[in-house]
């Protein structure tokens, strides 16, 4: 009896570690630069050793990958990346420089470690914002926003973060998480 339980635990752990294993094997092969069975097998061995010797906490929660939504997310992310780079570069070279910055707090709606990680990574690279604080339990992130002038700018930033979150959840989230996105409370405004 206990054997089956242990088996289920081991299988479950392996299933959780599987993306990490695949990633490690991929990196190993990319580092060698050529594809061969020897590289693949040695990569699997190295990945197993790494995950066994240096175990990481499993990322809780399943991930559903929706190809179309992933494409939408990646495409928007790349466009945003180019825009962000161009915008910040322009702000550095223009004569008046940056006007003033702000720190915002945004209430996110997802409750998954992996999704939050993807959201914050994406938000840090989209125009003008950078995550400086994450409160995991209340799902509030603190953003530093470069060069805001008016309140409309602040609202625009907040909306763009929430849109990014929505795209990430639609790409990687489970059905419940998408549903949670729909019935989410109105994003918290500025504390008065």
């Amino acid at each position: 009896m206990s054997g089956t339980v242990a088996d289920a635990g081991a299988v479950g752990r392996l299933r959780h570690q599987l993306p990490l294993l695949l990633w490690l094997v991929a990196v190993w092969n990319l580092l060698w630069g050529t594809w061969s069975w020897a590289n693949l097998i040695s990569g699997v061995v190295v990945a197993l050793v790494v995950t066994l010797v240096l175990p990481l906490p499993a990322v809780v929660g399943g991930v559903r990958v929706r190809p179309v939504a992933v494409l939408v997310f990646v495409g928007t992310f790349l466009v945003d990346l180019v825009r962000a780079g161009a915008l910040v570069a322009w702000q550095t070279v223009r004569r008046r420089g940056i006007s003033s910055s702000a720190i915002l707090r945004v209430q996110l709606r997802t409750d998954s470690d992996l999704l939050l990680t993807i959201v914050t990574e994406a938000v840090t690279l989209v125009p003008g914002s950078m995550v400086i604080e994450i409160d995991r339990e209340t799902r509030v992130i603190g953003l530093h926003v470069l060069s805001v002038d008016t309140d409309e700018d602040l609202d625009r930033q907040r909306r763009s973060v929430l849109l990014t979150e929505e795209r990430v959840v639609r790409a990687f989230g489970t059905a419940e998480e998408i549903a949670a996105l729909q019935r989410a409370p109105e994003p918290a405004g500025r504390p008065s």
Binding site: G85, L87, V88, A89, I98, H144
Partner: peptide, 13 residues
Amino acid sequence: LTRMHAGTKPQVL
């Protein structure tokens, strides 16, 4: 913080 913006985004692109 603003320098971090400058060091991150144009750099990655």
